[in-house]
Design a protein around this nucleic acid. Structure first.
Lengths: 265, 265
DNA sequence: AAGTATTGTGATTAAATGAGTGAATAGCTG
DNA sequence: CAGCTATTCACTCATTTAATCACAATACTT
């Protein structure tokens, strides 16, 4: 199929453009103009599903956004900016957005974000959990203990561990499945490896993390509904912070015992 | 006023969050949680204008987006991620969006984006015009002739000119108002400067650009309605491409005469 | 030059999304 | 167990957005 790519490309492009704030018609019109390079309202409505009489509004919207130039002739002709320019355009727009947002939020953020927490917070979604893990490791000053299944030791986390190590924190790393692999040594060469004395193989455990003996996180991998391939298994985690936090106390005990035991052997 | 900043910060933060795809309630709830650090539905609805019974939906939305963690107690407590994490989060999200979009658009883009154009395209808005100017200069292989009023020779354009020069294109630069200033030499040291023989002082001219004697752009500065300060004057431009394009022909003639005349003196 | 086709604008209607409100259920506390 | 609060759910109202139609203006054709 020659159109196999385009058949996919068109809806995804429209979807992204809508997510970036364009109306449905504007998104479709822009996609049409990118395909055509240039065209009239008629041309556009023939290529995509936009009523001809609405192409004018859509083109207006696009022009105001700087995505389309207009030739004032009869009939009017519309010209879409190049894909590279469009990319740069949106990048700039959203850099600006995020800058303004973080500035505003920084002003609002209260100083009393205490690290002393009573209970336990839950996080869902693999990316979100990873985000929290990275957060924690980034805040490490002295020690990071991280036990994980192999598939979750991504480059992002590995890099983060390296940075923490450079900062002077000691890294203790273990894998749950096999005995410590050489892969770990490649990814995080400065880490001090240890082996788990328990067998996690029949548990859905994902990661155990402890930072400076003050912040801890536990995650499990949970199958969605059907038997998806392993990569789409969802992850949910709980975390807590502070010396008096129950989860911290438990994991501290667990890891201390674990590490002591390892040193002996 | 102590709250002078926050009074501004809160609405702008909400506005940006909405622009980034959150619902009004979700945006307000997040702002409240950033201010509080942590809180119950009650707390949130007391701080910002969200009905208490709806904080739960909003928090759900935020949790799915990975912006808020939940503590399952009674009452539930919600915890907002740090502003830095939020910034990184959105950056990542939109980098991803833009990547997917440009990929899709590249597949769609027709190869026949000919540089040979019949008519003349119009662009409005200072930023958009600048974008087009940068586009043009970036595509220059041999020669760039750029005549501009001082306020429009921004750093972005200057840098772009330097790059073009490094690529082997000769840069000819002039300012419309005063005789050629030393400022130009600072900004674009490698440019060959020339003086205009005409007096543009009573015209609203903004820029004249010619690239490789094949693409040209003319812009004018136009007052909005009231007497705004000069920086808010809007700009509109027309451009054309191709050896047979009327605008190209005109500007080529103009500049050739201009440059010849300059060399004589 | 007149008629026909096509382009552009505006008004109008219908559908969908989202904001706001209140009632019902579940869970805790005394 | 009673009274309270927290949470969820269902519904209304308003605003926005999609879609259609009718008309005016312009260009093209014979």
């Amino acid at each position: 199929m020659s159109g196999d790519q385009s058949d996919q490309a068109r809806p995804t492009a429209v979807k992204q453009l809508k997510a970036l704030g364009l109306s449905t018609y504007a998104a479709r019109t822009f996609v049409a103009l990118v395909s055509l390079g240039e065209g009239t309202a008629q041309d556009v409505s023939e290529v995509v599903d936009v009523p001809r009489t609405r192409v004018y509004d859509a083109a207006d919207e696009l022009q105001n956004r700087g995505l389309v130039d207009v030739k004032q002739s009869s009939p009017n002709r519309y010209w879409a900016i190049s894909t590279e320019t469009a990319g740069r355009h949106f990048e700039q727009e959203y850099d600006h957005r995020v800058t303004v947002l973080t500035d505003a939020l920084d002003q609002l953020a209260s100083a009393n974000r205490s690290t002393e927490q009573q209970g336990v917070w839950t996080v869902t979604g693999r990316d979100t959990v990873t985000e929290r893990v990275v957060d924690f490791i980034s805040s490490a000053n002295e020690e990071v203990v991280y036990m994980t299944v192999g598939e979750l030791l991504t480059d992002e986390v590995a890099e983060c561990l390296s940075t923490a190590n450079d900062r002077g924190a000691s890294i203790r790393l273990a894998e749950m499945e096999q005995p410590v692999e050489t892969r770990l040594e490649q990814n995080v060469p400065d880490a001090q490896l240890f082996e788990s004395v328990w067998d996690w193989s029949d548990t859905p455990a994902g990661r155990l993390l402890m930072v400076d003996r003050d912040k801890t996180l536990v995650s499990v991998l949970v199958d969605g509904n059907g038997e998806h391939p392993p990569e789409s298994r969802d992850e949910t985690a709980i975390w807590g912070a502070g010396q008096t936090n129950s989860l911290v106390v438990v994991l501290k005990a667990l890891f201390t015992w674990q590490l002591d035991n390892n040193r002996d052997s």
